[in-house]
Design a protein around this nucleic acid. Structure first.
Length: 116
DNA sequence: TGTATGACCCTGA
DNA sequence: CTCAGGGCCATAC
């Protein structure tokens, strides 16, 4: 028996939750954890993303911290990469902080931001 | 077996 | 807004 890292099911639920984040929207690590049935385990989300096979093509860039910031250190390669991808989806990113560029509806205004 | 380390979060000061 | 403290838990050493 091969030691299952992190517990297969949990990791896969996290991947599924991330895959479900709509384009142009974001979700916090904690929100993804809750959506995956793992409340309080936000750290596991980052770990699962790092371990995710590239073939899954997950929208990992749509996952940010609860405070609306990019989790990677400023100046790091991944920080730049995530910023680029978010901007390409129409989101405004300034100093590592993500802001809704253009709210498309009242719903977006009321329900926008991190939660989903 | 024990300690350290994070793609985190929440509360309080 | 920042900072510290405590919680979380799979991994690495």
């Amino acid at each position: 028996m091969r030691p299952r890292a992190l517990g297969q099911p949990a990791q896969e639920r996290i991947w599924a939750a991330v895959a479900a984040i709509p384009r142009g929207r974001t979700a916090s690590y904690g929100a993804v954890a809750r959506a995956a049935g793992l409340p309080g385990r936000a750290r596991m989300v980052g770990r699962a993303l790092g371990a995710a096979p590239a073939a899954l093509k997950l929208p990992w860039h749509r996952v940010i911290t609860a405070s609306g910031r990019i989790a990677f250190p400023r100046g790091s390669r991944l920080h730049a990469e995530q910023t680029r991808r978010l901007k390409r989806e129409g989101l405004a990113v300034e100093r590592g902080r993500v802001r809704v560029a253009v709210p498309r509806s009242l719903d977006a205004l009321l329900w926008g931001a991190p939660r989903w």
